[in-house]
């Protein structure tokens, strides 16, 4: 695949209970872009992400990942292309040891023996978790769990990385580490987060969702300067763009 694009056109999703989570969402993310999807609770971020690897099917609208439109036939290929890191690493790490967990995807792709070992170790080294290889997931700290969760996806060498609230619940040091790690990646990256400082660090482009619609889509800095827009969407400027509480009150 030459272009790792993600194109969403007039996406609408209604849950079985009648809740209209997405009304009309359209955007196009290009190869190598790093994009944040932000919005208030219930704006439709998680629903949108679940569409990107075909876990939820659109009520109407189209999704295209790379060269393929998303449908039943292309699902296996698309799931390989889109690596999804879930919000709660306890959901992502379900195997008895870290090795088994990182090997789960590659095994399903048909790797075995030395190739498998190499692939697992490489993915763990990438996230600085080589030493955890034989540990059980429930013996890991929050930061370690998160890094291993990223490794479980990296081992499948995806072209597109999707991360749901990656810095949620991490201590400042682990958060920094994770951000530095994510910065190194050259994949097409899509994040959702309430950690707007992370968004500022990692994403050149931001899409703001409001009530299931795209309210704004543009360069991150521009969006974070628009106070009215942020307030309307129940957001606020990242702390690093706000004035210093000691030496000034610029807001």
């Amino acid at each position: 695949m030459s272009h790792h694009i993600v194109a969403v056109k007039n996406l609408r999703h209604v849950y079985p209970d009648g809740t209209e989570a997405l009304r009309d969402v359209s955007f196009r993310i290009h190869h190598g872009e790093s994009v944040a999807i932000i919005g208030a609770n219930g704006a439709g971020k998680s629903t949108l992400l679940l569409h990107l690897n075909g876990y939820l099917a659109p009520t109407s609208g189209e999704i295209q990942i790379g060269d393929f439109p998303l449908n039943k036939g292309t699902l296996p290929q698309i799931r390989r292309t889109v690596g999804m890191v879930f919000q709660d690493p306890d959901d992502q790490l379900f195997m008895p040891t870290v090795y088994d967990d990182v090997a789960f995807g590659p095994l399903n792709l048909g790797l075995s023996g030395g190739d498998l070992d190499r692939c697992v170790i490489e993915a763990l080294e990438r996230v600085g978790a080589r030493h955890l290889v034989e540990k059980a997931p429930y013996h890991l700290s929050g930061g370690e769990k998160r890094r291993v969760a990223v490794a479980t996806v990296l081992s499948m060498s995806p072209d597109i990385l999707v991360l749901d609230e990656p810095t949620n619940g991490l201590d400042p040091y682990s958060r920094r580490q994770l951000i530095a790690l994510l910065k190194e990646f050259r994949h097409t990256r899509i994040f959702t987060s309430h950690d707007l400082d992370m968004v500022l660090d990692l994403c050149e482009r931001t899409i703001v969702l409001k009530d299931g619609e795209v309210r704004a889509d543009g360069p991150t800095l521009e969006i974070f300067q628009d106070r009215e827009l942020l307030e309307e969407c129940r957001l606020e400027k990242p702390l690093s763009l706000q004035g210093c509480p000691v030496c000034g009150t610029r807001r």
Binding site: Y55, R79, N108
Partner: peptide, 8 residues
């Protein structure tokens, strides 16, 4: 979901 996402 996490399992399906990794080709289960």
């Amino acid at each position: 979901m996490a399992m399906l996402a990794r080709g289960f």
